[in-house]
């Protein structure tokens, strides 16, 4: 049952991550469009730059959990590499989990408040003329934090279940 739940979580996280990964194509297109619109037609847009950065925000917050599941958050492995799998599991379950939960918990709690306030006032961008929805970009923070927590729990589960499967490679 638990196993099934975590498999399902991994699949959702991988699905979201793989979809978010494609955003980089949109970013390339946007920036190239902006260069041409400004250079060839003297018609710079008011939105291409900002929208690009928000897409990267989506890439990092929606893709982060996927990267975590695939163990792409690097560590200094000088001692960690020498430890047995059980010791590693203990380090990850105690110290790493504590630091993770404090960090991501703050992002969830205060990032969530930041996003909620932004949504409440329908926050718009002030730098360009387009007035894009800042609240949408900020909402990615708590969403990403929730997904990160799920990804980490799934990782811990796999560590203790002795499951060597590469997370989320569904």
């Amino acid at each position: 049952m638990l196993d099934l739940t975590f498999r399902w979580i991994d699949r959702v996280i991988a699905g979201i991550g793989r979809a978010a990964a494609l955003l980089v194509l949109v970013v390339i297109a946007l920036v190239v469009y902006e260069i041409i619109a400004r250079g060839a037609f003297n018609m710079p847009s008011s939105w291409a730059h900002e929208l690009s950065t928000w897409l990267i925000t989506a890439l990092i917050f929606l893709g982060g959990p996927y990267a975590l599941a695939k163990d792409h958050f690097v560590r200094v492995d000088i001692f960690y590499g020498q430890m047995g799998s059980r010791t590693r599991a203990i380090v990850d379950t105690t110290v790493s989990t504590a630091l993770f939960l404090i960090f991501v918990g703050v992002l969830l709690w205060l990032g969530g408040e930041l996003a909620l306030r932004s949504i409440a006032i329908d926050e718009r961008s002030a730098t360009g003329a387009w007035g894009g929805p800042v609240w949408a970009a900020k909402s990615l923070l708590p969403i990403g934090a929730v997904l990160l927590v799920l990804a980490w729990l799934s990782r811990l589960y796999r560590l203790w279940a002795g499951d060597e499967r590469d997370g989320g490679s569904a």
Partner: peptide, 18 residues
């Protein structure tokens, strides 16, 4: 430029970039 100034310069034929 940005904001109201960007609009101002654009009204005079400029193109504004942030």
């Amino acid at each position: 430029a940005f904001g109201i100034e960007a609009k101002w310069y654009e009204k005079m034929g400029a193109s504004a970039t942030f």
